[in-house]
Design a protein around this nucleic acid. Structure first.
Lengths: 145, 145
DNA sequence: TTTGGTGCAAAGCGTTTGCACCCGC
DNA sequence: GCGGGTGCAAACGCTTTGCACCAAA
């Protein structure tokens, strides 16, 4: 996902590219493949745009998710995390429970499931598949402690 | 999962079977295979136990999850849902976004994934796999409206 | 100039916690 | 009687909202 592509999508949706919105998107680009909380985005954008506000962050995250620029990951017992989507490719993630780093998994369970099981009692609309654990770095820190 | 088994697990963990706790578990048994919110459990238990309190519900849900009697499903933009575990069998669910009814999927993506992809950069500890959509009943209601 | 976006403050919601009292074992 | 459990009220953290003003197109 690059800024030109983002601009296209925004324009097509009738949305403006404000400096705040640009700042948020730039944070995602800087931290590519990292999942970020609203708070992290707020802190980072505030550095360059001191009046940045949490409402602005949340409102933009919602919009960016709706137009498929970012992906929202709902966490257990903690703030949701957000991540830049890789344009055009459906995928899932391995997410480190300590540092939030994520790695793309080139595997979708539905590919297998569709062939293995046709469920005629439900209409499938969404799915959730995420792997959680610890990355090598955080694992190393753990064994030190 | 039956009450005798639940009593065993509680006793082994040094936990008491209070009337409130029993009431909560009974709601789960009555609504077997249905996912329930804390609020639904609160309302149902309150019918038979009028002093029932939300703190009691939440504290018990946390305990019951910890000792593997129920399963917590973290939802996007809405309250978490809870469901009685089927003793001893790891599985996932198809969950109706309207009525909360769920159906067990006898499929775990990790079975496939483990053979398809060995990720040596992460230590895998947890995973999330849920299918969402609409059950036939709710789908019928939708097309009427 | 139009319409979407922002900043602020306040409220929303689901959930958790401190504390005194209670009750199962 | 001990130690875990409950009820209450208040706070918590994350997120959303109403409103007046602002700025991109």
């Amino acid at each position: 996902m690059n800024m030109i592509r983002v601009e296209e999508i925004l324009k097509k949706a009738g949305l403006k590219l404000t400096t705040q919105r640009r700042a948020i998107i730039e944070v995602f680009m800087d931290y590519n493949d990292h999942v970020l909380t609203a708070e992290q985005i707020y802190e980072k954008t505030k550095e360059k745009h001191p009046t940045m506000n949490f409402s602005t962050v949340y409102r933009n995250l919602e919009i960016l998710e709706r137009i498929n620029i970012i992906h929202k990951i709902t966490m257990q017992n903690q703030a949701s995390k957000y991540q830049l989507l890789h344009y055009g490719k459906h995928h899932h993630h391995f997410i480190c429970k300590d540092c939030g780093k994520s790695e793309i998994i080139d595997f979708c369970p539905l590919r297998t499931l569709n062939t293995e099981l046709v469920n005629k009692n439900f209409v499938l609309t969404d799915h959730c598949f995420e792997l959680y654990g610890y990355c090598n770095d955080c694992m190393a820190n753990k064994s030190e402690a």
